[in-house]
Design a protein around this nucleic acid. Sequence first.
DNA 1: GCTTGCCTTCGAGCGCACTCGAAGGCCTAC
DNA 2: GTAGGCCTTCGAGTGCGCTCGAAGGCAAGC
Lengths: 174, 174
Amino acid sequence: MTAVSTAPEAFPGDLQVHPAARLRSILDSVAAEDGSLPPLNDELIRALRLPDDLPETLGIGEVAEITGITAHTLRYYERIGLVDTGRDASGRRIYDREALGRVAFVTWLRLSGMPIAAVSRYVELVKAGPQTQDERLGLLLDQRAAIVAQLRDLQGALAVVDYKITTYGGSCGA
Amino acid sequence: MTAVSTAPEAFPGDLQVHPAARLRSILDSVAAEDGSLPPLNDELIRALRLPDDLPETLGIGEVAEITGITAHTLRYYERIGLVDTGRDASGRRIYDREALGRVAFVTWLRLSGMPIAAVSRYVELVKAGPQTQDERLGLLLDQRAAIVAQLRDLQGALAVVDYKITTYGGSCGA
DNA sequence: GCTTGCCTTCGAGCGCACTCGAAGGCCTAC
DNA sequence: GTAGGCCTTCGAGTGCGCTCGAAGGCAAGC
């Protein structure tokens, strides 16, 4: 896994491709210089919970800016039940820390390729109470396996692309 | 990157999710026991070129079975110009080694998240001749960067999911 | 001859995940 | 008071990548 260290730029312009660019930049901040990532550490978890110097509550525009997810999409997520928010006196959405955490969590799941239906199911289970823990764990384990499979696919694709790059000029076949 | 070694099964049943399941199983055959992958080696490349004990030419049904891509999708790929094939006397598609190699290559690119439009562009450039090598290399480098970014995203998601699994029972937020 | 089965083309349809536009409300600044 | 800006809801539209069905051809086997 050689160079391509585009690390310095904190907020790349590919929002269309990856709505969670900003979350990724948060992840970047806890990643090592060589691009490797801690498998699981407190710093990362704290990053997920988002910085402490944020205001107590945020408007949808601020959440959009922080997470890189459009306000339209945030409303869509709420409409389909993925994230609940409060409202102020004039009916505007209020995101507190917990709501922001949910947005972040949902975004990570989506980023890992989990279909919205599955995320939705998970959120439903959480709302349903503690007796659903087994099924929730099952969903997470399934998703973990899916992530591992994707990692393997991507490593294979990386090998193929690297081969093409090193021998580039060859034909399309193989 | 701990266990979840579902390695033994050669042909998992998730064709819908990953049309390239069989290609992945070929990749598996060159992967180490612990799931790690060689970044780039001759064996993998040979695997991409597909086994030597295949018939010289294949029908679309055979290609579908080998690659895990449906005949419908193979026809679609041909229709949009991603893969050319020959025809027999009665108009049926004939896939030779080269065509099979192209199917495999295209599948790897798709698996890495490259949009069809970009794959299409790449194939066009190959057809256009050697003077397009620079642009081809550019496309490949872009895709390499995209793969690396995806790997990072997935590793982050894996960390988040692992955190949830190890602390499971918690709320949905964070 | 007739069935079976795999193939052909063409065009339409589908599922997912947004994405956008219209029409309007509320608050602040000038 | 009015303009600007950010917000609201609702429903429709978009783009991607398949996915499918219909209608029919061709060759082998009974």
